[in-house]
Amino acid sequence: MPRCALGGASEVALHVETEMHRRRFSRNLGLGLVLAAFVALVFALTVVKVTQGDRMHANDGKSMAGTAAQPATGTAP
């Protein structure tokens, strides 16, 4: 980094820039991890829903009787 050799004021400025980069990195890393976790969660939820044989939502109060896994009606091969 040739700018490091510029002396006093620039060194201070460079330090501030580094601090800004650190905060920006923390934001990007945090957002990246949150997005990765979201993808993993949607995947896990999909696996659970599909293996339970449910419709795309769990219990809407209309199907309280026999909440055990039931095959979708009329679509079984």
């Binding site: 620039s10 400025a13 501030v16 905060r23 923390s26 934001r27 945090g30």
Partner: peptide, 16 residues
């Protein structure tokens, strides 16, 4: 313009 960053308090992840 590098010094302009000094006044710019960029938010970190913790701020959100």
């Amino acid at each position: 313009d590098i010094r302009s960053y000094e006044d710019n308090r960029d938010a970190g992840f913790g701020d959100y």
